[in-house]
Simulated assay, not measured.
Amino acid sequence: MAHPTRPGMTVPLPGPLHSHQAKLAELADLGYSDIWSAESDGADAFTPLALAAAWEPRLRLGTAIVPAYTRSPALFAQSVASLADAAPGRFAIGIGSSSNVIVERWNGIPFEQPYKKVRDVVRFLNDALDGEKVSKAYDTFEVSGFRLGVRPEQRPQILVAALREGMLRLAGRESDGVIINWLAPHDVPTVTKVVTDAAGGDEREVVCRIFCCPSENSEVVRAAAKFAIAAYLNVPVYAAFHEWLGRGDQLRGMWDAWQAGDRKAALAEIPDQVVDDLIVHGSPAACRAKIQEYFDNGVTTSSLAILPLDPDLNHWQAVRDLSPSAG
């Protein structure tokens, strides 16, 4: 069965969390169906969604993503079950490996065996949400005698953030869907085929974080976007991802200059075409058309992330300009 198209927005929105009630209502009024939180160095992933659970029942809530490492297994299960209990049938937990910077440098946790860690957390959550006592040795941790005391009315969906084939197959084989990011619309079929094949041909939800800046000031947007692209695509897992997607020749100059320690030259080596592939920018109408290309190529759920690449960009006007009701 085909998944319905779900237009979503990344949260938290600008401003303090206590000020977001009216903004969340406007998101729903504008036709957004989902909000997706992340967890790095800002708000935790669950608090913005807990507020939304109480304030705006029209929105589905998801995490994109919670790192597999930064909560102990029992606490992870408690957090997931609590939010599922607060928002029955409209919460999805997205889990990923995150990065060595977030896990190891910021949280002091060894960033080891990321594939196995994500897989084990997915398996443990499935076991815990069954309501039975869990006493099991997983490859990366062991749980002895834990029983989840919160029983949500509806089991939350579990999604896996993935880049390359191993994690994509895990998403298709053992979860309800996949979370993807930093790719062009024409890259989506390459990714989704691996997921669908691993799922035995069954369709899975495909959530995509899409980076957007609805501005026609192309020179300014491209120059600022190159900083973001360099920051991400020099991380080894993202470099390998884009090599796999076939973007290696376009990015080789950037990678070589970065490795040589010449950051300025690395930025200059990023082709405008790569920026245009990975960042949605231009007029609002052009942006909406490109966002639609992601859906046409297999994305089922968007999580728009509005980037302030143009200093004159008004974030909330961008939210309105990119909304389903704007078309």
Rank of each mutant, 00 (worst) to 15 (best):
M1S: 08
A2W: 07
H3I: 01
P16N: 00
L17C: 06
L17A: 10
S19L: 07
S19A: 12
Q21T: 14
K23W: 09
A25R: 13
E26R: 12
E26V: 01
L27A: 05
D29L: 02
L30Q: 01
D34V: 02
W36L: 05
A53H: 08
R60T: 10
V66W: 11
Y69R: 12
S72C: 14
F76Q: 12
A77P: 04
A77V: 07
Q78S: 10
S82T: 15
A87G: 03
R90K: 08
G94S: 10
S98K: 10
N107E: 03
I109E: 07
E112Q: 13
Q113L: 08
P114G: 05
R119M: 09
V121W: 13
V122Y: 08
R123Q: 14
L125W: 13
L125Q: 14
D127E: 11
D127W: 06
G131D: 09
G131Y: 12
E132L: 11
S135Q: 12
S135D: 12
A137L: 04
F141G: 04
E142M: 11
E142W: 09
L148A: 09
R151H: 15
R151W: 09
Q154C: 04
L163F: 09
E165I: 01
L168C: 08
L168W: 08
L170A: 03
L170E: 02
E174H: 12
E174L: 14
E174K: 11
E174Y: 10
S175I: 10
G177S: 09
V178S: 03
W182P: 02
D187Q: 06
D187H: 15
V191E: 03
V194F: 06
D197K: 14
A198L: 05
G201R: 12
E205R: 14
V207G: 05
C208G: 01
R209P: 00
C212F: 04
E216Q: 12
N217Y: 03
V220T: 14
V221C: 07
A223M: 00
A224L: 03
K226S: 05
A228T: 02
A231C: 01
Y232D: 01
L233H: 13
V235L: 13
P236C: 06
A240P: 01
F241S: 03
W244R: 13
L245S: 04
G246E: 06
Q250N: 13
L251C: 05
Q259R: 15
Q259Y: 08
Q259S: 14
Q259N: 15
D262K: 02
A265L: 03
A266Y: 01
A268M: 01
E269I: 00
P271D: 07
Q273V: 12
G282W: 03
S283M: 04
S283V: 02
A285I: 09
A285E: 14
A285L: 11
K290G: 07
D296G: 13
D296Y: 04
S303K: 06
I306W: 03
L307G: 01
R320E: 06
R320A: 07
S323L: 01
G327Q: 00
